[in-house]
Design a protein around this nucleic acid. Sequence first.
DNA 1: CAAAATTAAATGTAATTACATTAAATACAA
DNA 2: TTGTATTTAATGTAATTACATTTAATTTTG
Lengths: 149, 149
Amino acid sequence: MGIESELQQSNFVSEEAKAIVNVIFTGNWMAYQQQELLKPYDLSMQQYNVLRILRGQNGKPMTVLAIIERMMDRTSNASRLVDKLVEKKWVLRRECPNDRRAVDVLILPEGLALLEQLDEVQNQWVNRFSHMSQDDLVKLNELLDHFRN
Amino acid sequence: MGIESELQQSNFVSEEAKAIVNVIFTGNWMAYQQQELLKPYDLSMQQYNVLRILRGQNGKPMTVLAIIERMMDRTSNASRLVDKLVEKKWVLRRECPNDRRAVDVLILPEGLALLEQLDEVQNQWVNRFSHMSQDDLVKLNELLDHFRN
DNA sequence: CAAAATTAAATGTAATTACATTAAATACAA
DNA sequence: TTGTATTTAATGTAATTACATTTAATTTTG
């Protein structure tokens, strides 16, 4: 379904205006799907994002600031996000040895195990997009990157 | 800047995974830009969205449910969004004559005037995307539509 | 070195959002 | 018709988010 019928709007003033609305709408739509996927695991999208960033460190700790720089939604309150992850015993927080203002955050084995479970779920779910060819996906990624400049 | 360097991540498991992240990230990025644009007018994106939907009605009233169906972010609390717009005297809320459960919402001349001001601001801002060709934009819109199925 | 400026994270708060529930009106079915 | 179900919007609430402020540590400057 095209964005016009999706929003029951026929008259975008320009292709630019349409693309802007389309990007925001499709992003919201996709985020919603992800949220639904994560809901059974009591995990928000932002929490999931932080966990995956930490996994990418392969055991190395990261400061809160470094985490924020890699987050998809950088307006999130990373400090309290990490709180939640600590509460759930998925990550460890400890004072950074070389800068006592900073805090080192580390993913725990429990966190890694949860992510592995979720890898499965995600891999299944990604099949939902098998109607897109590899060329389509590459082109879409290019255009989105180009759109942001 | 590509999504990899934007998120400082080099290893997406697949082009699908990358596209999913890219769509969400670009949507957030775009929404953030819009919010900044609207901030001086004390208007949230959702409020702006509702106002524009109402303008599209050309004077005809709309129920809250009909508004929700056309919103970009359908999880918004439309009832309280309309509250805010009524507070600011941009729209009028009145009992729907043929269905007393429903509420008719109408944009006021003050709301229309605000939108006209914002049309100017938006038109200026859209120039920011002049690096995208018309073909690029058309293709992007097609791919996003296709992505959602 | 000491004072001032900057940085990193946490926290207080007001506003917003999500989710469930409620209230009122309408539609439907026996 | 009358009771039940459904629909529409509003509301209560708990959680989340945005934004500013605070606290503590580090860096810079005179």
